[in-house]
Design a protein around this nucleic acid. Structure first.
Lengths: 108, 108
DNA sequence: TAAACATAAAACCAAATGGTGTCATATCAA
DNA sequence: TTGATATGACACCATTTGGTTTTATGTTTA
């Protein structure tokens, strides 16, 4: 569907600032300036984090006037979800059993 | 429940060698030597990865004779699963809706 | 006891990471 | 047109990361 991401999604979500940015964007699209207002670090640092998220295809952006608006694009998180779910059988409980059963049935 | 991990779980799973080690340990406990046999990097590098996983409480170890046996301890992955699942509502489908509904009911 | 084995520990290194500050460019508004 | 605003682009820095090699220690086993 798209070029191989330079930064993989695991690396992208390894940083807590980047995870916070994703949570922010889940609530609403935001410009760089708006995102910066939620953090104490410099704009340059935020932009770097946004670039990492962008390379991992976790966000998209569009230019509007002099603003650059970022949107959440969470599809790549599915890879993480699937990787983690492999391990659920080892720490398990009724809930994850049910989830596994449901997913297996749906896939068929 | 336990001391705060020095390395958090997101950082621990950010590296692909460490993810592979976890997959390996999911199949069976293994000594450092056995783990090394699955990789081309040096034993020292493997030991460092194991230390990171250990600090994140994703593995435990026990000494048996001259061997050190590592075991998977996947409970901390629940944090990642929960974080990721927050985003499912933004990309997913009937399946995640069902999952969310099921979980909400179970928790009550 | 001596050789072989499995791990531990330390010193070192290049590159990546997460951060900074400064200056330039484009756009909007008065 | 001019000033304020929002972003882009650099250059720089300290620390961490992922890797190496070398040397030492503890444990079997022949």
């Amino acid at each position: 569907m798209s070029a191989a991401p330079k930064h993989d999604v695991y690396q992208a979500i390894a940083d807590s600032s980047r995870r916070e940015i994703l949570i922010l964007l889940a609530k609403d699209d935001a410009s760089i300036k708006e995102i910066c207002e939620h953090f104490s670090i410099s704009r340059t640092a935020i932009v770097k984090h946004l670039n990492v998220l962008s390379e991992a295809s976790l966000v998209s952006d569009r230019k509007v006037g002099r603003s650059k608006i970022y949107s959440l694009q969470p599809e790549q998180l599915a890879e993480v979800r699937e990787w983690v779910s492999y391990f659920e059988q080892f720490w398990d409980n009724k809930l994850s059993m049910l989830r596994h059963m449901v997913e297996e049935n749906v896939k068929e």
